[in-house]
């Protein structure tokens, strides 16, 4: 079976099928997953926004689609969703930039 692209939105619907080749682990994963996203100390909306930010960090198109819908369903709006992504982006940028200190340390060792 050859496809011209790696990601097909239709594949998201087949996520549940991962149990076909290893059911006990899949069952554990899905029940854990469902538990994680239930309203708790954090609201369902807050969890969906975190998931949306993480989805952008791991750059998973399935998760981005799923948590865009998820955030809207839980009552988030565009502004909150975009702010969540900026949080992800800021951590990404910061986590590169903070290594600048290592570069600076090493450069200082090497130079006069």
């Amino acid at each position: 079976m050859s496809k011209k692209h790696y990601f097909d939105p239709e594949d998201l619907k087949k996520f549940g099928n991962i149990g076909e080749w290893q059911k006990p682990l899949a069952d554990k994963f899905f029940s854990y997953y469902a538990e994680v996203f239930k309203e708790g100390a954090l609201s369902e909306r807050e969890k969906a926004l975190i998931a949306l930010a993480v989805a952008h960090t791991v750059q998973c198109p399935y998760c981005i689609d799923a948590y865009t819908s998820g955030c809207l369903e839980k009552g988030a709006d565009e502004e909150q969703m975009m702010e969540a992504i900026h949080v992800a982006a800021a951590i990404r940028a910061g986590s590169s930039l903070v290594y600048g200190t290592q570069m600076m340390n090493h450069a200082k060792n090497l130079t006069m």
Binding site: E39, S43, E44, R45, S69, L72, E73, K74, G75
Partner: peptide, 20 residues
């Protein structure tokens, strides 16, 4: 009365109420 502003389903009523 909250209804979704698009083709998605409404989330948990109690949670939406608290946020509103």
């Amino acid at each position: 009365v909250y209804n979704p502003t698009g083709t998605f389903l409404p989330g948990n009523q109690a949670s939406l109420e608290a946020e509103f």
